[in-house]
Design a protein around this nucleic acid. Structure first.
Ligand code: MN
Ligand code: MN
Ligand code: ZN
Ligand code: ZN
Lengths: 132, 132
DNA sequence: GACTTATTGCAACTCATTTGCAATAATACC
DNA sequence: GGTATTATTGCAAATGAGTTGCAATAAGTC
């Protein structure tokens, strides 16, 4: 399903800002600041508030996923991928995808907890090749 | 090693606010707001800024650990325990400790990443017994 | 093309956390 | 103990990510 259809299905409209923010997100997971900077590089003037609201809508529609790392700044990435996690470089902040056998995790968690577990957040931190 | 010694070892001084904030943290992992409220219950007037600065120092000295959950508010807990993770109730916010076999995690991560992995953050979300 | 209403941009706001600075108090030294 | 040194505190003000109100604009519908 295309982004336009996903929007329309819930009464959202396809607009220039939404299209451009989506395009920018196609390249890499990014913070709002980085999205703004990438939009400016393309000579696009889109307000920060519009970026925030667009991302909120995208998350609601399942187009985008929001993740928070140590510094409390949200990072957004397209949700069209397999469930996965991230490794963040302590020095340069570079983010790499990482896939794990989730069964291990969920099972171990269910065994040790009285909660009904529905989801999890997992991020690794360390040094990328360059910064090592 | 006592807290006073840990402080002294790095040129920090033992003060009333530090002692009281430490005492309050002995009971449960808490946010700054909760720490403030617990101090007030004990008729102690300690400025919020002092709490923040004390926690920063405690983290630096390895006395306290800082964790952030979905809502971007930091929660602090004593670091004198075994490495463990948390389950957070989506409804009431209750936090429960959870222990896992970390070997699985670290190994799986090392296999799938080019980074030199040093640490990780892992939290589970779901429903506690009451809220189920 | 005109109508309806979602969306945008701007300014102002919120709220956790941080910073500057003068007053205070913990340690070290006599 | 008393004094000097300097870390720590409290208050006010600043910061910065994210949110909200509102009038102007533009997508979708017919
Ligand atoms: Mn990713
Ligand atoms: Mn814990
Ligand atoms: Zn790096
Ligand atoms: Zn609950």
């Amino acid at each position: 399903m295309q982004i336009r259809e996903k929007l329309a299905a819930k009464g959202y409209r396809m607009t220039k800002p939404r299209q451009e923010i989506f395009n920018v997100l196609c390249h890499a997971p990014q913070s709002v600041l980085e999205i703004m900077s990438n939009l400016q590089k393309k000579k696009l003037q889109i307000d920060k508030v519009t970026v925030y609201r667009t991302l909120t809508s995208f998350v609601k529609l399942g187009i985008v996923e929001e993740t928070q790392f140590k510094d409390k700044i949200s990072v957004y990435e397209l949700a069209d991928q397999k469930h996965h996690h991230h490794v963040v470089c302590d020095t340069c902040g570079k983010i790499e995808d990482i896939e794990l056998d989730e069964n291990l995790l969920e099972e171990a968690a269910k065994k040790s907890s009285t909660f009904q577990i529905k989801s999890h957040h997992l991020e690794f931190f360390g040094l990328c090749r360059k910064c090592r």
